[in-house]
Computed example of a mutant assay.
Amino acid sequence: MSEARPLALIVEDEALLTLLTESLLAAEGFDTIFAVCETEAMAQAAVADRITVAVVNLHLGDDVAGQRIIRALRQHAPNLPVVVITGFDNDAPQADLRGLGWPTLRLHKPGGYDALVPAVLNVMEQVRTGARPAGGRRHTDHNV
């Protein structure tokens, strides 16, 4: 019996960015599922224990729903690795990731997609080893 492929949840409302994310992760052996809005993402939270990693855009449509989505996912899978992709500056209140759990890395849109795969592998490795990044939350942000 073959080993199951890792499953990535992509929460993104821009179709081209969803396709880019899917392509990058598929090349690394991931299966993917999608959500384009908070309602769809919340439905995926019920199967969060099967999700290996989530890639979440904080701003969906006219709503900043990413933090709520991450909280819901982590209610079902407390150590779910999450990579946040956002166009908000790191110091913007909308981009505040405090209190959302661990492991979480932030990438800046649109250039952050070059660092997506390493970020996904990084948060997965943090869970596997239990090693938290040294230096606090701002040091875990990737300004790309």
Rank of each mutant, 00 (worst) to 15 (best):
E125F: 01
L116W: 02
G101I: 06
E125R: 06
A95Q: 04
Q126I: 01
V123T: 02
N90H: 11
L97V: 06
G112P: 01
N90R: 11
L107K: 03
K109R: 15
L107F: 00
A115Y: 05
N122Y: 05
W102C: 13
D91I: 07
L97W: 02
D96C: 14
A119Y: 00
L97R: 02
E125V: 09
M124T: 09
D91K: 10
Y113Q: 10
N122K: 08
T129P: 07
L107Q: 00
D96R: 09
V123D: 02
Q94R: 13
A115R: 01
N90P: 04
Q126P: 00
G112N: 03
A115I: 01
P110H: 05
L116V: 13
L100G: 09
G101P: 03
D91C: 08
V120D: 06
G101D: 07
D91Y: 05
R98G: 11
A115D: 01
L116I: 09
D96S: 13
Y113N: 12
R128D: 15
L107D: 01
E125M: 10
D91T: 13
H108K: 12
G111E: 12
V127Q: 09
P118H: 10
A92Q: 06
L97A: 08
H108F: 08
G99C: 01
L97Q: 07
R98Q: 15
R98N: 12
G111F: 10
L100N: 03
R128N: 15
G99F: 02
P110N: 10
A119E: 05
R106N: 11
T129E: 13
R98D: 14
A92P: 03
D96K: 11
L100T: 04
V117L: 01
P118K: 06
A92V: 11
W102A: 09
R128M: 12
V127R: 08
G101F: 04
L97G: 05
P93S: 04
V123I: 09
Q94L: 15
E125K: 06
V117N: 00
G111P: 12
G99R: 00
G99H: 02
D96W: 06
H108T: 12
G111I: 10
P93M: 07
Q126D: 07
D96H: 07
W102L: 12
P118W: 02
L105T: 03
L116K: 00
V127W: 03
G101C: 05
E125N: 08
V120P: 08
M124I: 06
L97P: 05
G112R: 01
D89Y: 05
L105G: 04
W102N: 11
G101N: 04
D89W: 02
L107R: 04
T104F: 04
Q126N: 11
N122C: 15
G111S: 15
D96M: 12
A115K: 01
H108P: 08
D114R: 06
V123C: 06
N122Q: 13
P118Y: 07
P93E: 05
L107E: 00
L100C: 08
Q94V: 14
V120L: 05
V117S: 04
L105A: 10
L97N: 02
Q126W: 00
T129A: 01
L107W: 01
T129M: 08
D89T: 07
A92I: 08
L107N: 02
N90E: 11
E125W: 03
A95V: 07
G99D: 07
T104N: 13
Q94G: 14
V123Q: 04
Y113W: 13
G112K: 00
R128Y: 14
